[in-house]
């Protein structure tokens, strides 16, 4: 059976050890994490994890996401396939300056791949490319076959859903409401 790449988005309280809680759930389900990226979200105190993994089907994802969501420190977890997302990775390529000069013009490479040049020194030239996996990979292969790549690094995926609002804000609004109701109840007692 061919596997599908899923992107799992997790919002959590910013607390030590949350990543460990999430990864154990992947491990127990025998799911291999392809990429992972973590950063503070727009809301203070809330962290956002973007994780990609290959899985057989949606049933696996549904169970996974419920188990993550169940952890006390997790605010919300959901999964998407690529169609629902705008997603991006970053790649950095370090090339030897000498080899670049030997190679001659690199204008066509810069245009073809929309490369940005971050650094040129006596020893090295650093390229930056943003894109999907296939795109950053294509540049890597072309560079490797022509100029040679000294170092290469690719970031984890970051992604945004195409729908209008971030689902987290809905959830937080609802929780705020529930909290107010609870406090009301307390006052009444």
């Amino acid at each position: 059976m061919s596997k599908t790449l899923y992107t799992i988005t997790v919002f959590s309280e910013n607390r030590v050890g949350v990543l460990n809680q999430i990864t154990t759930i992947f491990t127990r389900r025998q799911l291999n994490i392809e990429t992972l990226s973590v950063s503070p979200s727009t809301i203070e105190g809330i962290h956002k994890f973007t994780i990609t993994t290959f899985a057989d089907d949606e049933v696996v994802m549904k169970k996974l996401v419920r188990l993550i969501d169940k952890r006390v420190d997790i605010l919300k977890a959901y999964y998407n396939t690529d169609e629902d997302l705008v997603h991006q990775e970053l790649a950095l390529y370090k090339l030897s300056t000498e080899k670049v000069l030997e190679h001659g013009s690199i204008e066509y490479l810069v245009r073809k791949y929309n490369v940005r040049i971050l650094e040129i020194s006596k020893d090295c030239v650093v390229f930056l490319k943003a894109g999907h996996f296939a795109e950053t990979q294509a540049l890597f292969e072309e560079l490797a076959n022509t100029i040679g790549v000294l170092q290469f690094v690719r970031s984890g995926r970051i992604a945004i859903t195409k729908s209008k609002v971030e689902r987290l804000s809905d959830m937080l609004a609802k929780r705020e409401e529930q909290k107010r109701a609870l406090e009301q109840e307390k006052v009444m007692e």
Binding site: S12, V72, D73, I74, L75, R175, Q178, K179
Partner: peptide, 8 residues
């Protein structure tokens, strides 16, 4: 404690 926003 009676409420935690991350836990329902």
């Amino acid at each position: 404690t009676t409420f935690l926003r991350s836990y329902q």
